[in-house]
Nucleic acid binder design. Structure first.
Lengths: 322, 322
DNA sequence: CTCTGAGCTGAGCAATTGCTCAACGGAGGC
DNA sequence: GCCTCCGTTGAGCAATTGCTCAGCTCAGAG
C-alpha cells in the first residue's frame, strides 16, 4: 500500500504531511508554500493518509482493543461497541462487562430519559457498578415481567429499582409474570392498566438495557421457568440461537415464532427496534452464536461485550459470509 | 511524558483519540457520544497529543530528515529549510543541494517576480537542475558585479542568464565588476544608469538567490580577486566567519565593516533584509561557522543546505547558546 | 481533425474546528 | 464563615477544513 509511490511523490507527500501533522501549519499556508491550491493540498494529505505515508498510532492502555470495537461497530452497524479485556473466570468477566455498561449509562443518561430494562444475569450485574457523578432524573421501566424462580437481582423490577436508587431516578415496575400459562391469561393481564402503563412506557423509552440469552438448558429463560427444557429443545431444533426479552432469533436474525411467544409478557422485537438506543450487555462463553443472531436481527445499537465473544462473533461474520 | 496519566484518564484519551483520528468522527459526534461539550472533546484531543497518547509518524523516503529541517527553520526563524542527504564528495553534495534549490524556485516563482542573483559555486550549480514545467515570466537581476578571474558560470550575470533561459524569463545583467580599486571609482560607476538600474531592480526584488561564502583563502571572494589573501586574513582576525554578496559578518551576525566594503558593487545587508524571500544555497564542509553567522544576521528566509552543515549549525547554536 | 471520456483542477460554500471569554466552582487562606 | 484565586466549563464567533461542481486538459478512438 506504500510501494506504488515514486520517490518524488513519496517525498512530496511526506513533506506536506510533516508540515500539516507535525508542524501544524494550515492547509492554506502549506498551499502557498508549495505553490499549489488549497484543495490540492487537501487531496495530497488524503492520499498521504490512505497510502500509509502518515501513520497514526494511539497508545491504548493494556488490554483495550479499540480496533476490535470499531470493527464490531462497523460490521454490525452499531453506533458504538465496548469490549472488555478477557478475564479467566465467568464472574469477573461479567463484572468487567457490567462495569463498562455502567460507564456507558453514566455518560449517556440525561434528565427526563426513560430506560427499558430487561432481565438476566448480565443486566443484573450492572447496578453494582453504576455511580453517576451527579443525580439523574430518569425512569427505569421494566420491559418484561418477573419470575420468582430465579435470583431476585436478575428480575427487571429489581434491576430497575437498583439503578434508580443509584442515580436518584425512579423505577417503573411491571407487576406481572414474564410468562403465563396461556394466551388468554396474557390477554387478560394486558387489560390491566398497571401492566399496560409500564409496558407502554418501556415501549416508548429513549434507551433499552437488555441482555442476550442463550439456548442451552441453563439459560435464564429456562431457569426462570418461562420455558421447559423440552420447549427449549424444540426452539433449538427450529434454529433458535439466542433471545432478547424472550424473543428468539435464528443465526440470520429471523424471529422464530413459537407457541410460547404468545404467552410472554414483554416488549416484542419490533417494539425494541423502535427504541432509539438499545444497549445489549453480554458475557459468557456460550454466547457467540446468540450474539451473532441478535446482531443480525438489527435490534442492537450499542454492544457491550467481552473480548472472546467479540472476536468469535467477528470471526463467524467474516468467515460465514454476510 | 505519558506516565502521569491515571488508567481511566488514559483510557478516555485513547478512546476519544481513536474515535477522532482512526474512525474520523467529528468532535461534535464524539462529544454527544461521550456526553460532554465539543470544546471539552477538543481539549482532551489536545491533551492526548501533548501527552503522547496519539503518535503521528510520517514515513519519509530514506535520507530525508524533515525533523532536522523543522528544527533548523524554528531555531533561526526561517520560513522554510531544505536539507539534502549527505553525499561523500563535495561535487555531488553541491549538486544535491542545487537540485533542491531548483525545486524550490520551480514551485515558488510566479509570473512577474524579480529575483536577485548572487555569485558563487553553489548558486552557479542551480541552473543546471532548473526545469520548470511551464514557462515563467520573471526577471533574474544580478545583485553584484562580476569577475573575469573566476569560472564564468559562477558570475551573477551568467547565472541569471542561464536561469532565464530555462524558464523563458529575462536576465537583467549588471555590467560592472564586483570590486573596484577605490571608493571613488565605485562612486563613479554608481552614477551610470546601466549600473544603478540593475542594482535597484535587484534591491526591489521579490526574491534573492544567494550563496554563503567562507573565510578561507580559497573562497570565492579571494579567488575572484575581490579580496587579497592579506585582506582576508585581516577580516578573519576581526572575527569574520562568512559573507553574503561580499558583506562579511561575525559569528553573532554583526556586520564587519572594512575598507574593502566601500569598493564593492552589490547589494548591502540592509538591502537584502528588505527582500521578501532571501534563499541561501550552501554546501561544503568548510561552511558551518559561515552559515551560523549569516543566519544570526537575520538575512536569510529559506536555507537550502546539506545535512552535515545543517547538523553542525544546529549543534553550535544549541551548545554555544543561541 | 474531431470527438469522447477519464482524470485533474480550483472556486465557492457548508460543516467543522480552534479560540476567546465570561461565568462557575471548589480549595485554601484569613 | 467569607473571600480570593486558580482551574474548568461551554457559548459564540472567526478561521480552517471538507466537499461539490463546472470547467479544463489530454490520451486515445473514430
Amino acid at each position: 500500500m506504500l510501494a506504488e509511490l515514486s520517490r518524488d511523490e513519496h517525498e512530496l507527500l511526506a513533506r506536506i504531511a510533516h508540515r500539516s501533522f507535525i508542524d501544524r501549519r494550515t492547509q492554506g499556508e502549506i498551499a502557498s508554500e508549495f505553490g499549489m491550491s488549497r484543495p490540492k493540498v487537501q487531496r495530497l494529505l488524503d492520499r498521504a493518509r490512505s497510502a500509509g505515508v502518515v501513520e497514526i498510532h494511539i497508545d491504548v492502555p493494556p488490554g483495550l482493543d479499540l480496533d476490535l470495537e470499531s470493527r464490531l461497530a462497523e460490521t454490525f452497524h452499531l453506533t458504538e461497541s465496548v469490549v472488555s479485556p478477557s478475564h479467566p473466570d465467568a464472574e469477573s468477566q461479567r463484572g468487567a462487562v457490567a462495569r463498562n455498561a455502567a460507564r456507558y449509562l453514566e455518560r449517556s443518561l440525561r434528565d427526563g430519559d426513560v430506560v427499558a430494562i430487561s432481565h438476566g444475569r448480565d443486566t443484573g450485574a450492572v447496578p453494582h457498578y453504576f455511580h453517576p457523578a451527579a443525580p439523574i432524573d430518569c425512569v427505569f421501566a421494566s420491559a418484561m415481567g418477573g419470575s420468582s424462580r430465579i435470583d431476585v437481582p436478575t428480575n427487571p423490577n429489581e434491576i430497575s429499582q437498583a439503578l434508580a436508587e443509584r442515580c436518584g431516578g425512579r423505577a417503573q415496575s411491571l407487576y406481572a409474570p414474564a410468562h403465563v400459562q396461556s394466551p388468554s391469561v396474557r390477554r387478560g393481564l394486558l387489560q390491566h392498566e398497571a401492566v399496560t402503563q409500564t409496558l407502554q412506557m418501556a415501549a416508548g423509552a429513549d434507551m433499552a438495557l437488555v441482555g442476550i440469552g442463550g439456548t442451552d438448558d441453563g439459560c435464564t429463560m429456562v431457569r426462570s421457568g418461562c420455558l421447559t427444557i423440552e420447549e427449549m429443545g424444540r426452539l433449538r431444533s427450529e434454529g433458535a440461537v439466542g433471545d432478547v426479552l424472550g424473543n428468539y432469533v435464528d443465526v440470520h436474525g429471523e424471529h422464530i415464532k413459537s407457541p410460547h411467544s404468545r404467552r410472554l409478557i414483554g416488549l416484542s422485537i419490533d417494539q425494541l427496534r423502535q427504541i432509539e438506543t438499545v444497549v445489549a450487555v453480554v458475557s459468557g462463553d456460550e454466547k457467540p452464536l446468540s450474539i451473532l443472531g441478535v446482531l443480525h436481527a438489527g435490534i442492537v445499537d450499542v454492544l457491550i461485550v467481552d473480548e472472546r465473544n467479540a472476536k468469535a462473533v467477528l470471526d463467524m461474520a467474516s468467515n460465514g459470509g454476510t
